[in-house]
Design a protein around this nucleic acid. Sequence first.
DNA 1: CGTCATTTTGAAGCCCGTCAATCTAGGTGG
DNA 2: CCACCTAGATTGACGGGCTTCAAAATGACG
Lengths: 240, 240
Amino acid sequence: MTNPRRIIGIQKVRPATAGDCAACPAESVGLFSGAFRRQRAYLIDGFRIVQVAPQETLYGLGDTAEYVFLMRYGLMKLVRYSAAGDERIVRLAGKGDTFGLEALSAKSYRHTAVALGEAALCRVPAQVILGQEKSDPRFVERVMTVMQAELDSADLFLTELSTGGAHTRVARLLLYLAEREGGRECLLPMRDEIGALLGITMETASRVTAEFRRSGLIRPAADPQRVALDLPGLTSLASG
Amino acid sequence: MTNPRRIIGIQKVRPATAGDCAACPAESVGLFSGAFRRQRAYLIDGFRIVQVAPQETLYGLGDTAEYVFLMRYGLMKLVRYSAAGDERIVRLAGKGDTFGLEALSAKSYRHTAVALGEAALCRVPAQVILGQEKSDPRFVERVMTVMQAELDSADLFLTELSTGGAHTRVARLLLYLAEREGGRECLLPMRDEIGALLGITMETASRVTAEFRRSGLIRPAADPQRVALDLPGLTSLASG
DNA sequence: CGTCATTTTGAAGCCCGTCAATCTAGGTGG
DNA sequence: CCACCTAGATTGACGGGCTTCAAAATGACG
C-alpha cells in the first residue's frame, strides 16, 4: 500500500477573530484555559484559522515545526510510513485536541498530519506559546498535562487498537470515535484508513464493517460517511 | 495469561551520594543535565537509590505518583493489563531513561512498572523537580524534551513492534535492545515477556527464538540470560 | 533425586493476508 | 440522457501464519 494521494497547500488560512476564540472547543481544557485566557486578546494576533480538505496533508514528517494546532472540528490522523511505504496511524486528533506539540521543543514534526474528512483548526506559532512561559506560572503544568494526554492516547492505540481480533478492534475503534463525539454516532473512515489504524488489511476491514452492517451493529446515518452504533452490541464485542 | 507473580516492597532503598551522581548514566541527557547540574549538591538530599529484584513491581497503575525515576542500570517494563487480565508492555526503560513523569502533573501513575532482571534506579521526588521550575529557566524545555522522547518510544512500539510477522517483530526487538546497550549483545527476555512486548503468544515467541538459535541468528552469551546477535542477519529480517 | 517453572515441540484449526474478480456510486464527456 | 470511466467497497478462494490445547523436555534448586 504505497502512499497514493498527497494533497498539499490548498488550505484556506485566515486570521482568528475574538469570535473564533469564544467558540473554541479547546476553551476549557487545553493550553489556553484558565488564567491564560485573559491574555488571549493580545495573543490572538498570531493565531490563524486553517481549513483543510479531506485527504489534505497539513504537514509532513520532518517538516520544520513552527506551529502547534488545536482542532476546531473534524478529525486528523497522525501517520508514520514504514520503509516499505505503507502507513500506520499512530494517533487521531478530534475536536478540542492539541497536536504538533513537538514544535515547542524540537525542530521538526515527528509525524505526517492528514485530514480525515473536512476539518478546521487553529494554528498557533510555537514562539507565541513559548513567550508566555515567563508570565504564566502555570504554563508548565498545562503543557505537561497536554503531553500526558498525548501519551495516554498512544497507550490506548497500543492496548486497545493493536490487540485482539479484527472484529474486536473495529468495535473498539467505533466506540472510541463515538465517545469522543459524545454520541452514539461516528464517522466511518475509509476501509484502508481503518486498516492503517488497526494494523489490519483493507479487505479485512471491509469484511468486518460489512458484517457489522448486516447484523445491525451499525446503521447508516444522515451523512453517508457516518454511522449510528449499537452501543451495547459493540461494547460486548469490544471486551471479548 | 492472568497476572501471576507480583513482588512488592522488597526493594532496597538508600540515600544517594555525590558518587552516585557522578556515575549517573542520565548525566548528560535527562532532566538534570547542563545548568541544572550545579544545583544538584543541594537537591541530592531528596534522591534515593532504589535496587529492585527481577520481576519486582516498583509501582502499580493508579498508585499515588510521588516520584520520577531515572534508570541507572537494568531494564524496566511499563505495563498495562487488559480487562481479561493479560498484560501488554507499552514501553521499556533502559539505562539513562526517565519514567514516571506523570508524577509531575497527575496524581497517579499511568502504568505498572516491573523490573526485567536486576535493576537500579534513582528515585526523585516530583516536588523537588517542580521546585526547580522558577530557578531554572531552561526547565520547561528539558521536561518537554524528555516527554517527547517518551512519545517517540511509544510510536516506535506502534510502528516497529506491533506490525509485521512474528519473526520480523522479534528481530526488531532484539536489535532495539542491543542498540540501546550500544553493543551486539542484549538481554533475551522470558518468552511470555517477549509475547507481551510484541502482541504475540508465548509459544510463538519460543518457536521464533528457537529457530533464531538454530539458524545462528542469536548465540548464547556469557550471561545465560543474554545473547549475542548476528546484526546483519537480523537487520535484513527486520526490514522484511 | 524430585519438584516446579520455563521452554520447547507437536498437531489441529481458524483467522487473516493475499490475489483477484465483481459491484456500486459518482463524475465526465459525447 | 446514456455510455463510459474510475475510485472505493465488497466478496470469493486459497494458503500460510498464528493461536490454542496439550505434552514432553529442560534446567534450576532444595
